[in-house]
Simulated scan of single mutants.
Amino acid sequence: MNPLTTYKFQPDFRLGAAWIISIAATLGSLYFSEIKGYIPCDLCWFQRIFMYPLTILLGIAYYKKDLGILKYVLPLSCIGGAISVYHIAYQRFYSLFSNHGLAACGPTPCNVNYFTWLGFITIPVMALTAFLLITVLLWSLSRAAKAKGASTED
């Protein structure tokens, strides 16, 4: 029995995993700002704008077993990931951005690293990892559903 064609849609691990990743990313960002006291820069806020709704939308989709949500959450995840890529580039190549007048950010500079794990893992790298994992999981779920004939248009 194929889980994608049972009833309307029976979610496999991918939708639930994407939801759990979005919850972890949301709680992680709140931990860094509310408990550790790190003040988010403008780019961090934009990444949050795209991650926080994923937590709610993916949770509802998982509960309702609704694949139709994919057309709404995939763009959020892709755009959030693109912002993360820009933020990582901004941090790594700040002098290049500042030399061309592109280094404007809000009250908290976007090039500040509050910490670095293993020499390369920063907060924007963690955000990008979450966005990439969510995107890959949802994209593969969408492909599997189309291959099995399950509707994502509901």
Rank of each mutant, 00 (worst) to 15 (best):
N2I: 06
P3M: 11
P3V: 12
L4F: 12
T5D: 03
T5W: 11
T6D: 13
T6I: 13
Y7L: 02
F9W: 06
F9E: 01
D12I: 10
L15H: 03
G16H: 14
A17E: 04
A17S: 09
A18Q: 08
W19R: 15
W19Q: 11
I21R: 05
S22K: 02
S22Y: 00
A25R: 02
L27V: 01
L27G: 12
S29Y: 02
S29H: 06
F32T: 06
E34T: 09
I35Y: 10
Y38L: 00
I39Y: 11
I39M: 08
C41F: 05
C44V: 00
W45Y: 14
F46L: 14
F46P: 04
I49W: 14
F50T: 04
F50L: 10
P53I: 05
G59E: 07
I60C: 04
Y62R: 14
Y62N: 06
Y63A: 14
K64N: 10
L67G: 10
I69F: 04
L74W: 00
L74I: 07
P75M: 06
P75S: 05
L76A: 00
I79W: 11
G80W: 03
G81I: 07
A82T: 06
I83E: 04
Y86N: 13
Y90T: 00
F93R: 02
F93Q: 11
Y94E: 05
S95R: 12
F97S: 01
F97M: 04
N99Y: 09
N99Q: 01
G101P: 09
A104G: 15
C105A: 11
G106P: 12
P107N: 05
T108R: 13
C110M: 08
Y114C: 01
Y114E: 03
T116W: 04
W117C: 03
L118T: 10
F120Y: 11
I121C: 02
V125C: 13
A127H: 15
T129E: 01
A130Q: 07
A130I: 07
T135E: 08
L137Q: 06
L138A: 04
W139A: 04
W139V: 15
W139Y: 12
L141Y: 10
S142N: 12
R143I: 00
A145S: 08
K146L: 08
K148F: 05
K148D: 08
G149I: 02
A150P: 14
E153L: 09
D154T: 13
D154V: 06
D154R: 00
D154H: 09
